[in-house]
Simulated scan of single mutants.
Amino acid sequence: MKRYLIVSLSTGGGHATAGNSLAERLKDRGNEVLVIDLFKGINAKGLHTFICEGYNFIATKTPQLYETIYRAGNKPIIAKGSFDITRRLSQKKIKEFISVFDPDVIIAVHPIVTDILGGMKQRGYLEKQKIVSVITDYLAHFVYVHKHKYIDAYFVGSDVTKRDLLKRGVNTEKIYPFGIPIKKEFYTPVNRFKNGKFTILVMGGSLGSRNMSSVLSKLMQVKDNLKIIVVCGTDNELKIKMDKFINQDPSKEVIVHGYATDVQRMMDEADLLISKPGGASVTEALLRRIPMIIPYMLGGQEKENRDYLIEENVAIWVSNVKDITDIVTKLINEPEILAKMGENMEQIANNFSVDNAINVLENL
């Protein structure tokens, strides 16, 4: 039995999903596991407010500014200084926290955490611990690899992610393309079931989307009979807006959920997913073989995820929401398009395995 510390930051839901997935599997094998949100765990309220709450505000309210910040942080000359400041402000409390729990392995499921821990190890701290980084998107931001010499293993989403890390100088022996860890029910065999209607699942991700109403409006203009399942998450205002589409058109069966715990079942029922391309959502879709339309996204990492999905021919990017009506109509009338996309998804997801990741962790 080993002791594992899994460390994240609350900037979007995908990081926590990856950490909790690994924690669940490690505990199932009898290991001791502690999961923390770093700045909350060490009581660094100022850093939590500035970085985490600041991220959530900027990413959702001013996405163009977020895109600018993301790109700036991807440049070594800017990132090195900025995140070294974060490390200096937090490392004393981190050392104190780690000395109490005394883990064998520390798993970072966030780029900033990866950079902080790598910087601490570079300076002679954390000599006893192995450091593992989980990259929760399909291309790696510079902050993930800034201190790669001091990271013992990387878990990445695909072979494309692995090649990206190799170009940045990471040793191939450190990189494990087992997919981004998500909830265990998504790894079960796909159980497709049909309800007699072309079914579309519409989601906005953990931070929601201001554009879902526009998407629903365009879906209502499709002439075919549709079943439309909408998941709003914890955004109650969004759910109120979506509820207005229920019973609007007898040819459209619209079902609206708030926070949902059975997304895997919904994906197995659906023919098509309309969603933003967050790392966890993309991985869920790949494992359930459900092709995607992407009409909205955050900038930065989600734009890179979108480009990856388009290159692999498993998603369609819609730059203008007005085009959704025609695109969905085409997909209904030409089912071979979705069939091919599903085959491509199956090829990508064949190597996804949390169990393989756990085997690596237990043998570090």
Rank of each mutant, 00 (worst) to 15 (best):
residue 127 E to H: 09
residue 293 I to P: 00
residue 201 L to Y: 03
residue 288 R to G: 02
residue 308 Y to P: 03
residue 318 V to G: 11
residue 41 G to W: 06
residue 15 H to S: 11
residue 322 K to A: 10
residue 41 G to I: 12
residue 16 A to R: 14
residue 26 L to F: 01
residue 246 I to Q: 01
residue 137 D to M: 04
residue 192 R to N: 12
residue 148 H to E: 15
residue 166 L to D: 01
residue 229 I to A: 02
residue 53 E to G: 06
residue 195 N to L: 07
residue 11 T to C: 15
residue 164 D to R: 04
residue 166 L to E: 12
residue 289 R to P: 02
residue 128 K to F: 02
residue 332 I to R: 08
residue 342 G to N: 05
residue 360 V to T: 08
residue 270 A to W: 01
residue 150 Y to G: 02
residue 344 N to F: 00
residue 205 G to W: 03
residue 274 I to K: 02
residue 1 M to W: 03
residue 330 K to Q: 15
residue 25 R to T: 10
residue 298 L to S: 13
residue 87 R to N: 05
residue 217 S to M: 09
residue 246 I to E: 04
residue 321 V to G: 05
residue 136 T to A: 07
residue 24 E to C: 01
residue 317 W to R: 12
residue 354 V to F: 09
residue 52 C to M: 08
residue 206 S to N: 08
residue 290 I to A: 01
residue 239 K to P: 10
residue 275 S to I: 07
residue 124 G to L: 14
residue 203 M to N: 08
residue 316 I to V: 07
residue 362 E to A: 05
residue 239 K to R: 15
residue 321 V to Q: 06
residue 6 I to V: 14
residue 202 V to L: 13
residue 93 K to D: 06
residue 42 I to S: 03
residue 310 I to C: 06
residue 316 I to N: 09
residue 100 V to L: 09
residue 3 R to D: 10
residue 340 K to Q: 15
residue 291 P to C: 13
residue 145 V to F: 02
residue 364 L to S: 06
residue 147 K to C: 02
residue 103 P to Y: 15
residue 283 T to K: 02
residue 308 Y to A: 00
residue 74 N to R: 15
residue 270 A to P: 07
residue 332 I to M: 02
residue 247 N to T: 04
